[in-house]
Design a protein around this nucleic acid. Sequence first.
DNA 1: TTCTTGACTTGGATTGCGTCCATCGTAGGA
DNA 2: TCCTACGATGGACGCAATCCAAGTCAAGAA
Lengths: 138, 138
Amino acid sequence: MSDLLERLRGRGWRLTSQRRVVAEVLDDGEHVHLTADEVHARAAERLPEISRATVYNTLGELVTLGEVTEVSTDGRAKRYDPNAHHPHQHLVCTGCGTIRDVHPTGSPLTDLPADQRFGFTVTDAAVTYWGLCPACAS
Amino acid sequence: MSDLLERLRGRGWRLTSQRRVVAEVLDDGEHVHLTADEVHARAAERLPEISRATVYNTLGELVTLGEVTEVSTDGRAKRYDPNAHHPHQHLVCTGCGTIRDVHPTGSPLTDLPADQRFGFTVTDAAVTYWGLCPACAS
DNA sequence: TTCTTGACTTGGATTGCGTCCATCGTAGGA
DNA sequence: TCCTACGATGGACGCAATCCAAGTCAAGAA
Ligand SMILES: [Mn+2]
Ligand SMILES: [Mn+2]
Ligand SMILES: [Zn+2]
Ligand SMILES: [Zn+2]
C-alpha cells in the first residue's frame, strides 16, 4: 500500500485523509470486489465524515490511473478490484453473486483472429465464467 | 420471426399486439444489441401506445425463454441480443460503444481447468473484447 | 510559522435505468 | 357472445451514480 501511496504522490496527488482511507480499504487484502457503497462503509469506520461522492471520485481516479479495475458483471453496482497488476478473470455465482478470481492458461486476447477484428485495435479482453458455487448448488 | 412467434404460442403465450411488435423489432435483422429504451422507441413507431413497462416485461420473458440474450458490457443500460441461437462473443469500442459480434475459435468454457473451478458447476462463459473501432481510431 | 490558493470534499439535488403495483383492457376459450 | 385470467398501463418508487455550488484544507511560498 505504501507503494500505492508513493505512486500516487509521485503523480501529483494531494494526499488527503479521505484518499488515504479509501486506498487502505482497497489494499487491506481481505476485501476484493467491493462495491462503492461497501468501500464507503468500510472507509467510514475509520473516517466517519467521508462522503460517498469522494469515494466515487477517488475510485474513479484510481481506475483512470490503472491502480484499480472496474468489474461490472451484471447490471448491479460496479465492483472495484485492487488486483489490477495481477491479470486474471472472474468466476461469478449466479445464485449469490460471489466473485472468485481465476487464472486460466492462455491469453484471451490472442484468441481473436485478425479476420475477426474488423479493423479494431483490440487492447483488452475480459472473460467471465458463470455457474453455481458449492453453497448455492446444495 | 414467425418461427419465434410459433415457439412462443407453443409455450402458452397470449399473442398480444405489444408482444408482437417487440418481437418484430428484435427480429428485423437491422438492429441487434438495442437497449430497452431503443426497443421501446422502435416499437412505438408501430404501436404508439406501448408502454415501457411492457417492453421490459416482454424482454425479460424472452430472456427467460432463452430466445434473447442480455448483454451488459459496461455499467450502462443492458442490451438485448436476438442472436441467442448463434453462440458468439462481443467486440466493444471504448470510444463510441459500438458492439460487433465475433466468432473466435474454441470454447472459452473448456479453457477453465478443473483446479480453477473451486467446486462451482460452471455453465456459461462470456468473453468481451475491448478496443477502438476504425472510426474512433482515426 | 503563517499565508495563500487552487485542488479537494461535502451533501443534497439530479439523472439514468429499471422495477413495482393498482387498475384497466383484452385474447382466447366456453 | 360472454367471461375471466392474463397482460398492459403509467406513475410511483428504488438503486447506483453523477453533478454542483459552497466550504475546506494540503502543501508550497515567503
Ligand atoms: Mn478480481
Ligand atoms: Mn451479439
Ligand atoms: Zn453462490
Ligand atoms: Zn468507436
